[in-house]
Nucleic acid binder design. Structure first.
Lengths: 204, 204
DNA sequence: AGAGATTTTAAACAATTGTTTAAAACAAAA
DNA sequence: TTTTGTTTTAAACAATTGTTTAAAATCTCT
């Protein structure tokens, strides 16, 4: 029992790493097996097929990715602090898992027809009350009148893109890995200042 | 002579479409051949190998992608108008070629070791004088003091991400293709307002 | 220790991959 | 028309793919 779940878990961990880095089409079952320290047959013994293993990984990663945002909305702080915290959380999450947005988006488009969709997030977002809270803040003149989808898109773009386009940005601005990581720390504050300035009405 | 370049061109066009949509690992030589209305042998007859054809496409697409930004900087308008125009151009370009950023970034990371890099862009950016113009505007108190790399990143993130993460955004906000396209038209103005408000000091 | 189940291994499978070959079809020039 | 070079086709190649098989090894439980 300890041995079996050991191997199964090793394969899952290896598959997650390899799938995220190279995508479904960019890797082979044997590569995953080797990364897990086993052979191909065991991959299919535990997960039936490359595709079934992929779906398992994809769903958990997508959920992890989306939930890392949503739970901020449920905390008991002001809307402005929520946006602030959301940016912090996103940068923190993406510093640890920088390839996840590209992975999720790539595989979403590869499976355009098939329906491996995360269902719970939209309803969870609804239940958080963020919708009503935004409308309230806009009615009170605290927040700029903007649909929630635009707000979400602004936050996601400014948080995710620096990690998604890391190589492109490094090349365009001639930055080493270390320089870019250091740059991101300051850049996060830029993003915060810009977003909060724009989204919320300053009263002086 | 008219027949040969006809077939060669058909293959190039098909390859560009297929590579951009599915990536190098996501498609086969035979798929490209079929898309071009020919057979596999002709693909290698004209381009020697799948990889050589890919490099050809990748380089031209990357150049097209990067040059679509740079040339705005050379025009004879104020810096604020340049940013404004840049956002317009980017949204226009990306509306026509929404998959190009993902393609370029994906293949950049797949070829991390190999060096298929666009050289001319950095020097062209230098020659445009945008560097000095930015410093000047910042010295004059017109523009917020921010390194050029952060400015470029802000513009790219807010322009590219809406197209790169289209499927994700649609699902998160429950929008159809048409609704999302319509949303982008208004969203562009949001991006412009936010960027210009943040980057330039308002004097009233 | 031994029966019964589970896990691991090595080998094989058919299908698909990128690439090459050799002959056919075609075009251009004499 | 015949010759020469180019383009196209169909078939084959070896390597790699996802997947399966069947035997070996290991574990579980009495």
């Amino acid at each position: 029992m300890s041995k079996d779940s050991h191997t199964e878990e090793k394969i899952k961990i290896a598959a997650k790493r390899v799938f995220i880095q190279k995508g479904f089409s960019g890797c082979t079952s044997r590569e995953i097996a080797k990364e897990a320290g086993t052979n191909v047959a065991l991959v299919n013994y535990y997960f039936r097929s490359k595709n079934q293993l992929f779906v398992l990984i994809y769903q958990s990663v997508t959920e992890e990715f989306l939930l890392s945002m949503v739970d901020v909305f449920s905390s008991n702080i002001t809307l402005k602090e929520k946006i602030n915290k959301l940016v912090d959380r996103e940068f923190e999450f993406l510093a640890k898992h920088p390839e996840i947005p590209m992975f999720v988006i790539n595989e979403m488009s590869r499976n355009k027809n098939a329906g491996i969709e995360p269902q719970g997030i939209l309803s969870q977002l609804g239940r958080s009350g963020i919708f009503e809270e935004t409308l309230e803040a806009q009615k009170n003149g605290i927040m700029r009148k903007l649909d929630l989808s635009s707000i979400i898109m602004l936050v996601m773009a400014n948080c995710q893109h620096p990690f998604m386009a890391r190589l492109l940005n490094q090349q365009l601005n001639n930055l080493s890995d270390e320089e870019y990581s250091a740059h991101l720390v300051k850049y996060k504050e830029v993003v915060k200042e810009m977003l909060l300035n724009y989204l919320f009405i300053q009263k002086d």
